[in-house]
């Protein structure tokens, strides 16, 4: 085994049921906000608002339900690499679409 990459052997972090329920309620509230905002004409901010709320929700799910917050730093790097790749794909796509 490569010791640099070893998972830390700290005691596994336990998230209480209360916290899970709280996060779940938070997610439901954010979903409610998304639905409510869809009925309001925010012009060019519609997509931005929806995306920001979605980003907050996925951050909560990743960190709490998928335990990313309590994992070894390497796993967080893996997620960052995936997100960065996606961002690069978007940027490069827009070099075509934005300059039509």
């Amino acid at each position: 085994m490569d010791h640099n990459d070893q998972h830390s052997h700290d005691a596994p972090h336990v998230v209480s049921y209360g916290q899970y329920v709280l996060i779940w309620l938070g997610l439901l509230a954010l979903t409610g906000i998304t639905v409510a905002l869809a009925g309001i004409d925010l012009g060019r901010w519609v997509i931005v608002t929806a995306l920001v709320i979605a980003a907050i929700k996925s951050t909560l799910v990743l960190n709490i339900f998928m335990h990313l917050k309590f994992e070894h730093r390497m796993f967080r790097w893996f997620v960052v690499i995936a997100l960065a790749t996606l961002a690069i794909f978007f940027i490069l796509l827009f070099f075509d679409y934005a300059f039509h």
Partner: peptide, 18 residues
């Protein structure tokens, strides 16, 4: 290599910048 994909599409009407 993951960033060069659109060179397959130079004749499909992409933007010049792209």
């Amino acid at each position: 290599g993951s960033l060069v994909w659109a060179h397959h599409m130079f004749t499909v009407g992409m933007s010049d910048t792209g």
